[in-house]
Design a binder for these strands. Structure first.
Length: 268
DNA sequence: ATGGCTAACAACGTTAGA
């Protein structure tokens, strides 16, 4: 059956609850994975999301920053979270759903942004980002590759040249530096993950999921980056029938998130 | 001309995003 999945960096779920409800109403996903919910578990607007038809919710939040949440139409049969880099900073959760073809586990990530200076020796945030990616690599290399698993979320790296508006101008900008891309590539290779977005959009076409708030007209300037991703385990490598960046949602008023959701349909 | 903006907080300036 077709499983509809959306990943979205919401940049405060409390401030943008109406946008979340509109997205659920318009796109009717089976599962929505949110990042940067910026609230503690007991502040998550679960009752209103349940009332919208999504009563199965697993939240991993904390005060003020980061935080991820999964909201599902269908029962979550298993859920958990992993602390990376010895910090309990709410950057990962997993949920497992029972589908016709057996269980499917979705990992929802919010990788550290990494600060401004792309040098781990002088910027502790960048160091944290690289260490986080190394830990992902170690973990993925131990995973059973025959399992049906999906990685989604804001990985905060735009790996390909056409994942940014100007490869040349962003080579020294955090999110597109060669060292970050190498780290992300290693994590991807360690799990034999397939990049579902690039299965459907050729590498020579521009593809973005994030546009800065600072542009006067984000859509006209179109200086975007592909920071959000959907990865498929080898067992699901051919499962994605359709995937698209919901670019219009970046313009939803009032107060859009600076990330657009990524919508995927998987045959499970 | 990649920061021109945006969000949370015991909160009117700081920290963080990317």
């Amino acid at each position: 059956m077709t499983f509809k999945l959306i990943t979205w960096n919401i940049n405060s779920v409390r401030l943008r609850l109406d946008l979340v409800k509109r997205l659920l109403e318009e796109y009717q996903p089976d599962l929505l994975c949110l990042q940067e919910i910026k609230c503690q578990n007991d502040q998550f607007p679960g009752a209103e999301i349940a009332a919208a038809g999504y009563p199965h919710i697993h939240v991993r939040g904390q005060k003020a920053y980061h935080g991820v949440a999964a909201v599902s139409r269908h029962p979550i049969v298993d859920a958990g979270q992993r602390a990376f880099c010895g910090k309990d900073d709410a950057r990962h959760q997993h949920v497992t759903l029972e589908q016709n073809g057996g269980p499917v586990t979705v990992h929802n990530f919010y990788v550290p942004a990494g600060g401004d200076e792309p040098d781990p020796a002088i910027n502790e945030k960048f160091d944290h980002k690289l260490k986080f990616l190394n830990e992902m690599t170690d973990w993925f290399s131990q995973m059973t590759k025959t399992r049906r698993e999906v990685v989604v979320g804001d990985l905060n790296i735009a790996p390909l040249e056409n994942d940014v508006w100007s490869h040349k101008q962003l080579l020294k900008v955090v999110s597109h530096t060669p060292i970050e891309v190498e780290h992300l590539d290693r994590a991807m290779a360690a799990g034999n993950w397939h990049d579902a977005m690039r299965q459907h959009v050729p590498a020579d076409e521009k593809l973005y999921t994030w546009w800065s708030y600072r542009a006067k007209d984000w859509s006209a300037a179109d200086k975007g980056r592909r920071l959000d991703h959907v990865w498929l385990s080898p067992a699901l490598g051919g499962a994605c029938q359709k995937i698209e960046v919901l670019r219009d949602v970046r313009g939803w008023e009032p107060k859009p998130s600076d990330h657009a959701p990524v919508y995927a349909e998987l045959e499970l």
